[in-house]
Design a protein around this nucleic acid. Structure first.
Length: 573
RNA sequence: ACCCCCGUAGCUCAGGCGGAUAGAGCAUCGGAUUUCUAAUCCGAUGGUCGCAGGUUCAAGUCCUGCCGGGGGUGCCA
């Protein structure tokens, strides 16, 4: 299906081109957008203002000429020139109703499969082994997963990869800590917490004395050289961590195609160095091997330390090359926090020099902070992700018990789970990620206003209406009646319904799930106004069925849209 | 010192390509339920879009400088 803005843009651009051929290249910028306010019609075109310069004519004259000479497609009721030269477009209500009926009928709710035959690799979540996932990890996980779902729905072949931090210098510290401080009972009860405790303690020791640090390095060298005992310990740390991560992923409804840690690429690191040297990109400097990026005005990128060890730039380059060879993707997307911006600029630049063809994109988000400042494992002021999820479900359960006391307890709990987890996810998905976020319980767990429960509530209300319709009018098929948009609120709702495809494609194109969240919130707002202000079941026959059908299409969009954000929609809440 | 990001209502934030009177949520105040789930709806209050210049028909949006906050800058990731 073609979206309304596209239908209108195609028409307006063709007509502008016919009427004003002298405008030339500027015509490619002609487009139609939704109207800024209902007062200005349904859609508007600002091309007359933009073309005024190249045509050397007054904007209003251009717009008027367009009105005089342009054809009228079947969708258009009337056009008007307004303000300095806007062209306001009013759609035929009956045509809009037909369009909504077509969206309703469409399995995909009008969303095109623009990704068919295209591959995207998505690198997200990527927590560090031996550290618990805390509230700072949720953004990459939740945003990455939404991008994953959006692209799959659009028909892309998606390779999602959880690039675990399972290699590196911290393992020397952990192994030393394990040998000296491990509490087996604690390790059995709460493995990752214990590993973290061990790590922090060993890290403090290494700060205190050089000898400890040296021993940590030795353990690391042994591990990297393939020492059987250290390898076994490392394997154990990874397995214990993965078990806990998977528990959280299950709870969040997140799944990966691949879980390849940094260690997976370890055997390929020497080959990366070879490539860099063969291409003359890497040079010795101060005992280390580095790539100079002066032409790009970037700091040097170190690929081998003076002690011969590799660092994360080398690993990420190996990862890039591996992904290019194995999947030949059109795009590779990384979802990480803002601190890695420079790192990825360097990696992308070096990667291009090495012949990586894929488009490379870094989706970054602001760090999560606490009101009193940053948190860190070592300061011990982290809030574990599981605690956040527990708290959210608890708060949701309290509300469910209060508002739906008659609901069986296991259903109350299921609803609280969907609402609680949904609220936490939505808090991160509904805002532009590129701002620093100060964590607050009230904000993360908001259950009213612009929140997941607001959308889930709208959905549940619709399901209830549909059930009541079936009860009161058994055997009747609303689909046999046409959609009617007599009330302004119905018309506004229909316009929003028609824009679902636009919201989904834009959210994916801009890598911003918040675009879809905003859309769904606006849809719910319009629906709630509709619900509140016009009768459905008590409306006369015909009007009643039309409204039930509108309810139905809104429900499907809410369910599909929330699913794309990774949020569940209970039938009752 | 340099580089990147942010600064919009009391608080938290939306505002692809520059477009009409800058929008939500929370909070505050006032209304709405014999009727489809009130986790809702309707209304009100609340703004020199950090500051100063510039570009143009038009700037929250683009450019320059400054102020404030955050992050980063070859041997952690």
């Amino acid at each position: 299906m073609t979206t309304i803005d596209q239908i209108l843009t195609d028409w307006v651009r063709a007509e502008f081109t016919r009427i004003f051929p002298e405008a030339g290249d500027a015509l490619s910028a002609v487009q139609v957008v939704s109207a800024g306010s209902p007062d200005y019609g349904d859609y508007q075109c600002n091309a007359a203002l933009a073309l005024a310069r190249s045509l050397k004519r007054k904007p209003r004259d251009i717009a008027q000429t367009f009105l005089d000479q342009a054809s009228r497609p079947e969708s258009v009721e009337r056009l008007e020139v307004a303000g300095p030269g806007f062209i306001n477009i009013h759609l035929k209500t009956i045509w809009l109703a037909g369009h909504v009926a077509a969206v309703l009928k469409d399995e995909r709710l009008g969303v095109p499969t623009i990704g068919t035959g295209r591959t995207v690799v998505l690198d997200y979540s990527s927590p560090n082994v031996a550290k618990p996932m805390h509230i700072g990890h949720i953004r990459s996980t939740v945003i990455g997963n939404a991008l994953d779902r959006l692209h799959r729905f659009l028909g892309y072949r998606v390779i999602s990869d959880n690039h675990l931090g399972d290699w590196g210098t911290q393992f020397g510290i952990i192994i030393m800590g394990y040998r000296h401080f491990a509490d087996q009972q604690a390790l059995a009860d709460s493995p990752v917490e214990e590993l973290e405790r061990i790590y922090v303690k060993s890290y403090e020791q290494s700060k205190a004395g050089d000898e400890w640090l040296q021993q940590c390095r030795q353990e690391l060298v042994k591990l990297q050289a393939g020492d059987a005992e250290n390898q076994a310990l490392w394997r154990q740390f990874v397995d214990l961590s993965l078990k806990e991560f998977n528990r959280i992923y299950l709870r969040l409804g997140v799944a990966f195609d691949l879980t390849r840690g940094e260690s997976y690429y370890n055997p390929r690191l020497p080959a990366v160095i070879d490539m860099l040297q063969q291409k003359g990109l890497a040079r010795e400097s101060e005992g280390a091997l580095v790539v100079f990026l002066e032409d790009e005005k970037l700091p040097v990128c170190m690929v081998r330390k003076s002690d011969g060890g590799y660092n994360y730039a080398t690993t990420d380059l190996a990862t890039l090359i591996s992904r290019q060879e194995e999947f030949d993707p059109e795009t590779i997307v990384y979802v990480t926090d803002e601190r890695q911006q420079l790192h990825f600029k360097q990696i992308f630049t070096v990667g291009k020099k090495l012949g990586i063809r894929a488009r490379l994109h870094h989706v970054w988000f602001g760090l999560m902070r606490l009101p009193e400042g940053t948190f860190s494992t070592r300061q011990g002021n982290v809030i574990k992700l599981e605690r956040l999820l527990d708290e959210s479900e608890t708060r949701a359960l309290a509300v469910v018990r209060q508002t739906s006391p008659a609901m069986p307890e296991n259903q109350q709990k299921a609803v609280a789970r969907a609402v609680g987890i949904g609220a936490v996810k939505y808090a991160d998905l509904s805002q532009n990620p590129q701002s620093l976020v100060t964590f607050s319980w009230d904000k993360a767990l908001a259950l009213d206003g612009n929140s997941a429960p607001y959308l889930q509530y709208a959905y549940a209300r619709i399901r209830s209406v549909q059930d009541k319709y079936r009860d009161q009018f058994p055997g009747r098929d609303p689909e046999a009646f046409p959609i009617r948009l007599d009330e302004p609120v119905e018309r506004a709702l229909a316009l929003q319904v028609a824009r679902f495809a636009e919201a989904v494609t834009m959210a994916a194109r801009l890598y911003k799930p918040s675009v879809l969240a905003d859309y769904l919130f606006a849809l719910s707002g319009l629906y709630n106004g509709f619900y509140q202000n016009v009768p459905f079941l008590k409306a006369p026959e015909g009007v009643r069925e039309s409204r039930v059908r509108l309810c139905g299409v809104v429900a499907r969009i809410l369910r599909q849209g929330l699913d794309l954000l990774g949020i569940e929609t209970p039938e009752r809440i």
